[in-house]
Amino acid sequence: MKEDRALGSATPVLRGGPRHVAIIMDGNGRWATQRGRPRLFGHHAGAKRVREIVEACPDFGVEYLTIFAFSTENWKRTQVEVAGLMNLFRRYITKETRSLSEFGARVRFIGDRVRLDNKLIKLMNELEEATAHNTRVNLTIALNYGGRDEVARATKRLAQDVASGRLDPDDVDEETLPKYLDTYVLPDPDLVIRTSGEARISNFLLWQSAYAEYEFIDTLWPDFGREEFGSLCAAYGGRDRRFGAVRT
C-alpha cells in the first residue's frame, strides 16, 4: 500500500485500496431513537453523511461508490416512514444536484423504478443527465433495489433475447448474465461495508459481491465519517485476495 499526494492537494491519496466500495447504510433509525427523535430524523442525518463519504473517495483511491438507499423490502415499513423517505429522496436530489456536479461525481441509480412516483423518477433522470460527463467519482444509488429482484429482472430479459433468437442458449455462461444486470457498466465491488453492527448482506449486490471483502462495523451510519472510511480502505489494502486460488 502506498500513499501519494494528489496534484494541488494536501491530502495523501491511498494507493492499493479498493477501487469500488459498496455501503449498506444501516442504523439511521436507531441513531434517532437513541436521541429521542423520530426515525426520519435519523434518515435526514444519514443523508447528510453521504456527501462527506463521496468527497472522501478520491483521496482513498475509490473510483466507484455504491450506496444502498432503499430496498425492495423497505416498502414493508410504516406508510409514514416510507412517505418520509420518498420525500427525503426528492429533497436530496434537488438539493445536491449542483454540488455533486461541481464536485465531479457521476450519479447513477439502480433498482426497479416502476413503483416509484413520477416526480422522483424525473428528478433521478435529470440528476443522471446533469452528471453524465463527470469522471472524478462514480456514485451509484440503489433505490427500490433488491439483489434477487435484480437477478429475476435480468433473467427475464435474457430469456426474452433467447426466445426472440437474439441470443443462443449455448452461448449463455457466467459472463452473460452480468450484461443484463442493473450494474452492467460498473466493476464488481471490492469492499462491502455494513454499518450498525448487523452482520448480514440484506439482499444487496448478490451476484456482484461474490468475491468482495466485507466489513461489518458497529458504527451507526450517521456517525460514520471520513476517518473510519479511510481506515477501512487502508485495511483492505493489506488483505490477501486469492479469488479461490492458492498462493504459491
Rank of each mutant, 00 (worst) to 15 (best):
E3D: 00
R5L: 10
A6V: 00
A10G: 09
V13A: 09
V21E: 03
V21K: 02
A22E: 01
I24P: 01
N28Y: 14
N28F: 06
W31F: 11
T33R: 15
Q34V: 00
G36D: 14
P38W: 02
P38L: 03
L40A: 07
F41G: 10
G42M: 01
H44G: 09
A45I: 11
A47L: 01
K48T: 03
V54N: 02
C57G: 15
F60I: 11
F60T: 10
G61M: 06
V62P: 08
L65A: 04
A69E: 05
T72A: 09
K76V: 12
T78D: 09
V80Q: 11
N87F: 05
F89W: 04
R91D: 15
I93L: 15
T97C: 12
T97R: 14
S99E: 09
S99L: 02
F103I: 01
V107Y: 03
R108A: 10
D112H: 15
V114E: 14
L116H: 04
I121W: 00
I121M: 00
A132Q: 05
L139I: 02
I141W: 02
L143H: 13
Y145E: 04
E150W: 05
V151H: 03
A152F: 04
A154M: 13
K156C: 02
R157C: 00
A159E: 07
A159L: 10
V162P: 05
D168W: 00
D173Y: 03
E174S: 14
T176V: 09
T176S: 04
K179H: 06
Y184L: 08
V185R: 08
L186W: 01
D188Q: 09
D188W: 01
P189T: 07
D190I: 10
I193P: 01
A199L: 01
A199G: 05
S202E: 03
L205E: 09
L206M: 14
Q208G: 07
A210T: 15
E215I: 06
F216L: 14
W221N: 08
F229Y: 15
L232I: 15
A235D: 10
G237M: 12
R239H: 04
R241C: 01
R242N: 01
A245K: 15
